[in-house]
Design a protein around this nucleic acid. Structure first.
Lengths: 201, 201
DNA sequence: TCGATATTGTATCAAATGATACAATATATA
DNA sequence: TATATATTGTATCATTTGATACAATATCGA
């Protein structure tokens, strides 16, 4: 990540606001309201910057900001799980906790859902949709890679065919993103998660 | 359904357009564009009626129209499956075909997804969200009822605990609504559906 | 200090939005 | 036919939208 966006020997004023902090604020707004319902003014207010700074920093406007917000989201939120998956012997429990986050009513995932799943269902713009698909696919692939390592190590013995791991894990995840709004009992959701994960054990 | 909305001995002009046909056109627009991105003018154009007729028929405006569109959607689209489930001995194949419809790239469900799942993820308005939740819950409950009957008849022998049937079937359905945009190979989606349904056999 | 350059605030634009006003029109009953 | 009442078309409204214009301001390097 760039801390300083300016060249050396470059005249002129420096940015007043912190770009990453501003991006995090934008993520909050997008996450809560969704892409369409987050107006440029909402975003500017939350980011603590004015019109000019907004369109100066993001020449592509709201679309460019959302692209950058998705990239930052991807680099911030899943990283802990992805790192953990590389470390632990048995990835099942790591996955379980990741899915549990969606079932917990408090917490951002429980409240507002998956940043990428929401984008895929809510947004029409193909570029934004494709980027969300790319990120969520990367996560799902990392999940099934970790499981493959565990299978090779003889730690788990999945009954589900290997070519379905990714799509199955993905469908459990994207499903919860909607199902959590329908079935509001976290215990029931977690029981469904537990049952769905059993096929890998 | 009412064909004539007028009282007897009621003076004045009759409606020119057919209400149900107009509602079906509105469903098409909402389905394709989503609630927010379907403008009142889009809807009027598709329905073949003008501003005045629109707000005369739907005093609550777009919100009321969407409520009526969801009710009509519920009474039209799932009815075939729900009837079938009451007739057949083994409901599994009926469910499979219902899920398959989401995996097929052609066809409205494959293209635009589930009318109710979309509403739940896309719409902020709690009233609209709740109605979508009610309808999708009714369908899921009918699914698990049919399975219960089949279990009692000794036709199926599910390994999944009965209290999870609804949420599991729901999560498979809502998941596919998003996953179909990520994994675009219908064969893989159908294989995942087949695998997920095995727990009931 | 000075000039160069980037950032910022205010005002504003054009388009789209949901919704209303009101006159003109059509038609069912008497 | 006459009248009452409902429907319809056009014009219009106030808001919100994403985005731009431009002058004022701040600060870096020389």
């Amino acid at each position: 990540m760039y801390i300083c966006t300016r060249f050396i020997n470059m005249a002129g004023r420096n940015k007043i606001y912190n770009e990453e902090e501003a991006l995090d604020k934008a993520i909050s707004v997008f996450w809560e309201k969704g892409y369409d319902n987050a107006s440029s003014r909402d975003l500017q207010k939350a980011m603590g910057i004015g019109m000019s700074s907004f369109y100066l920093a993001y020449k592509g406007g709201k679309q460019e900001l959302f692209i950058k917000s998705m990239n930052r989201f991807f680099s911030v939120y899943p990283s802990a799980v992805l790192t953990m998956l590389k470390i632990v012997e048995n990835p099942i429990e790591v996955l379980r906790q990741y899915y549990y986050a969606m079932a917990d009513a408090d917490g951002m995932f429980g409240k507002f859902g998956c940043y990428f799943s929401n984008a895929i269902v809510q947004i029409g713009d193909p570029d934004l949709k494709d980027l969300a698909i790319k990120h969520i696919t990367d996560i799902a692939d990392a999940f099934s890679e970790a499981l493959l390592k565990a299978k090779k190590a003889g730690i788990i013995n999945p009954v589900i065919p290997q070519e379905l791991w990714s799509v199955y894990l993905l469908n459990l995840w994207t499903g919860l993103n909607t199902t959590k709004s329908i079935e509001k009992n976290p215990k029931k959701l977690k029981a469904a998660i537990d049952f769905s994960l059993k096929v890998f054990e």
